[in-house]
Amino acid sequence: MPTLFEKIIAREIPAKIEWEDEFCIVIHDIQPQAPLHLLIIPKEPIPRLAEAGDNDGPQLGHLLLIAREMAKKFDLANGFRVVINNGPDGCESVPHLHVHLLAQRQMQWPPG
């Protein structure tokens, strides 16, 4: 059964798309935790970071480079946070690895 993100990538479910290339799609989170909350989602699904293989390195690196590009696009020179949730205790809600880019508010530490 396709994940929510696979349905968004297939355009079966609408989303506010900010960026797309052959490897990933960037959408606005529907339950934002910051004024800017983007999800950077690989088109080739990996269930979670703990299940990524050694050969997934280029794909994972691409997601972080797109996070950098989104930070430039939104002029986030004052800072931003990148988060990857993994498993139930990590607050993973969709079993399809994705990167959260949160910004435009002061982040707290420790998170969670």
Score class of each variant (00 low, 15 high):
residue 1 M to P: 11
residue 2 P to A: 03
residue 3 T to Y: 03
residue 3 T to P: 02
residue 5 F to V: 06
residue 8 I to M: 13
residue 8 I to G: 09
residue 9 I to T: 10
residue 10 A to C: 14
residue 10 A to H: 15
residue 10 A to W: 12
residue 14 P to Y: 06
residue 14 P to S: 10
residue 16 K to I: 04
residue 16 K to L: 05
residue 16 K to Q: 10
residue 17 I to K: 05
residue 17 I to N: 00
residue 19 W to P: 01
residue 21 D to V: 12
residue 21 D to G: 05
residue 26 V to D: 06
residue 26 V to W: 02
residue 29 D to N: 08
residue 29 D to Y: 09
residue 29 D to I: 10
residue 29 D to Q: 05
residue 31 Q to S: 13
residue 31 Q to N: 12
residue 32 P to F: 14
residue 33 Q to Y: 13
residue 34 A to Y: 00
residue 35 P to S: 13
residue 37 H to K: 03
residue 37 H to S: 02
residue 39 L to Q: 03
residue 39 L to C: 02
residue 40 I to N: 02
residue 42 P to A: 02
residue 42 P to D: 01
residue 43 K to G: 00
residue 44 E to C: 06
residue 46 I to S: 00
residue 46 I to K: 00
residue 46 I to Y: 01
residue 47 P to Q: 03
residue 47 P to G: 03
residue 48 R to M: 03
residue 50 A to E: 11
residue 51 E to G: 00
residue 52 A to N: 01
residue 55 N to I: 15
residue 55 N to T: 15
residue 55 N to W: 04
residue 55 N to Y: 04
residue 56 D to N: 06
residue 59 Q to I: 05
residue 61 G to N: 05
residue 62 H to I: 00
residue 64 L to Q: 10
residue 65 L to Y: 09
residue 66 I to D: 05
residue 66 I to Y: 05
residue 69 E to P: 08
residue 70 M to I: 14
residue 70 M to Y: 14
residue 71 A to D: 10
residue 71 A to N: 09
residue 73 K to R: 08
residue 78 N to G: 12
residue 78 N to W: 11
residue 80 F to L: 07
residue 80 F to V: 10
residue 81 R to Q: 12
residue 83 V to W: 04
residue 84 I to L: 09
residue 84 I to C: 04
residue 87 G to Q: 02
residue 87 G to S: 02
residue 89 D to R: 11
residue 90 G to D: 05
residue 92 E to N: 07
residue 92 E to W: 08
residue 92 E to P: 09
residue 93 S to N: 15
residue 93 S to V: 11
residue 96 H to Q: 07
residue 96 H to A: 04
residue 98 H to M: 04
residue 99 V to H: 00
residue 100 H to Q: 06
residue 101 L to Y: 08
residue 104 Q to F: 14
residue 104 Q to I: 09
residue 106 Q to P: 15
residue 106 Q to N: 09
residue 106 Q to T: 13
residue 107 M to H: 15
residue 108 Q to Y: 06
residue 109 W to M: 08
residue 111 P to W: 13
residue 112 G to R: 15
